[in-house]
């Protein structure tokens, strides 16, 4: 595959957050939110990132955008290592990479009108002013299915779904190439979720966007993504094409995760094999040795406790990190 097909490449990304304690704020431990993961996102595709809370999926999204000073590893955007870029170059990069937030209530400034919120990136990056600004603003409103005359309203005057549209329009305002969607639909009602998912898919096609779609809902992620990456406790468990995710999951965690999601059809669901995991996800401060999943894994053998499995290519754009595969 030609390397210019790849928009984002992440290599051995490590992000540890220190836990500080005492009067002198000394570091007592690290939250190992992301502990050495690698993946890439091709231009124009959607990569889904799933996992349970504390698996590091949100942190990964933020690191890719350069919002955190990463502990280790590299993040390439169109071949440039964004961690090495500073000053003006960084601002230009920011313009190309935007973020859609999970909570459409908290992520909009309650004291700014919808128009000001959506227009802010344009002002920050000095994309447009005057009439051009107003025209583009109106265009953004229509693009996400809102009426331009709503621009003088405040966020609290919109419903949850409309607010998320505002959040999406804000991300689109500076015509980015790449958008990280951080749980963009999980705070919304079922019927509104579908609206927003379809909007995101439409926009991707029309504007040629590339998404990193972070979510915990496996059905949604599989639906919108071309490929799905499954994370567990700061590690990559499996990356596979979405079409293959349901039919051929290889990692025991992916299998358990899939089986834990009931299918909204009683007849089909009854025929599925159920794998019940025991216990909770361990704390990312003190992850288990070896494969992080081994204490909950039904297939674990001795080597799983001692040696960390590598993410291996098993063919057909399918990677898996498990000793037993």
């Amino acid at each position: 595959m030609a390397s210019d097909d790849i928009l984002i490449r992440v290599e051995d990304l490590v992000m540890h957050f220190p836990i500080l304690a005492g009067v002198l704020r000394r570091k007592v431990a690290d939250v190992k939110a992301v502990d050495g993961i690698s993946f890439y996102v091709k231009r124009g595709e959607t990569l889904g990132l799933v996992g349970e809370s504390g698996c590091g999926k949100t942190t990964t999204g933020r690191c890719v955008l350069g919002l955190y000073d990463i502990t280790g590893g590299k993040v390439f955007f169109e071949g440039t290592d964004i961690t090495k870029v500073t000053g003006k170059g960084r601002r230009a990069l920011r313009r190309n990479m935007q973020l859609v937030f999970q909570d459409p209530y908290a992520s909009l400034d309650p004291r700014m009108t919808a128009g000001d919120i959506i227009g802010e990136p344009m002002l920050v990056h000095q994309v447009a002013a005057g009439n051009a600004y107003r025209e583009q603003l109106a265009e953004l409103f229509t693009m996400v299915g809102l009426e331009p005359r709503m621009s003088i309203r405040y966020p609290h005057e919109f419903s949850g779904g409309q607010r998320q549209r505002i959040g999406i329009a804000r991300a689109l305002a500076v015509r980015p190439k790449f958008i990280v969607c951080d749980e963009p639909v999980s705070a919304l009602d079922v019927s509104i979720q579908a609206q927003v998912i379809m909007l995101l898919m439409k926009l991707r096609q029309e504007l040629g966007l590339t998404y990193l779609f972070v979510a915990h809902d496996l059905s949604v992620v599989r639906f919108i993504s071309d490929r799905v990456a499954v994370m567990y406790l700061g590690k990559m468990a499996e990356i596979t094409r979405s079409d293959e995710l349901y039919d051929n999951p290889l990692h025991p965690y992916t299998q358990a995760l899939l089986s834990a999601v009931p299918i909204p059809d009683p007849v089909v669901d009854r025929q599925r094999k159920r794998i019940l995991l025991y216990g909770d996800v361990p704390s990312p401060v003190n992850p288990p040795s070896g494969c992080h999943f081994n204490p909950r894994c039904r297939m674990a053998i001795d080597i799983c406790k001692e040696q960390e499995p590598e993410l291996r290519d098993v063919g057909g754009e399918h990677w898996v990190a498990c000793h037993r595969v």
């Binding site: 019927s191 496996l218 059905s219 079409d243 059809d265």
Partner: peptide, 12 residues
């Protein structure tokens, strides 16, 4: 409602 949720078992 039923048609608006993505399903794991159906083709994408």
């Amino acid at each position: 409602l039923l048609a608006s949720v993505p399903r794991l078992d159906l083709p994408r």
